[in-house]
Amino acid sequence: MQTRQSRRPGELVFAIALVVFSAILLWQAFAISGFSGLSTPGIFPMLATGTMLVSGLAILRDVVRSRPVAGGRSPLHGFVADIVPLRLSGMIGLVALYLAAMPWVGFLISSAIFLFLSILFLWRRSLLMTTALTAVSLLAVYLVFRVVFQVVLPAGTLMRGWS
C-alpha cells in the first residue's frame, strides 16, 4: 500500500463525502429487496455499495494518516488555489450555462456564445481573433457533424416558430 507524504487540499472532505455517499446508497440498496433471498435484484447493488463503503473507509483512513496540507495556508484557500482555481470554476459555470441554454436557443447560437466566451476567458487575445476562431471552429463542427455525419443537433424551442 502506497502512502503519500502530504494531503491534497480538500481531500479529507472528499473522502468523508465518499464514505457518507456510499453509506446512504448501501442503505438504499438494502431497501430494494433486503435479505429476502440470495438472487433478488437488491443483492448486487448491496455488494457494489458495500465495496464502495469498505474501500471508502480505507481511503479515508489513508487520508487521515497522511500529513495535512503544508505551507501554513488554510485548507479552504488551498482548495480554491489548487483544486478549483477561478479558471476551472469559471469554465464549469460557462459549460453549465451553455448546456442549460442549448435546448432553448438551439445548438448554433448557444455554441457560438459558449465558444466565444470560453476562448476569450481562457486565451485572452483580441476580440477580432476570438470571433474569427469561434466562427471557423463552429463552421467546421457544423459541416462535419450536421452536413457530413448527419447528426441531429438541438434546434431550440425558441426558434421553432421561425424555421
Binding site: M102, I119, S137, V141, F145, L153
Partner: peptide, 26 residues
C-alpha cells in the same frame, strides 16, 4: 489548449446529444 478545451466540450455535447437526441443526457 485554450482553444482546444472549449472545442472538446462542444464536441462532447454534440456526441452525447447524438445518441438519443435527449437534452437530459448532456
Amino acid at each position: 489548449k485554450a482553444i482546444l478545451i472549449p472545442l472538446i466540450i462542444v464536441l462532447s455535447a454534440v456526441g452525447t446529444y447524438a445518441i438519443q437526441n435527449n437534452p437530459a443526457h448532456i
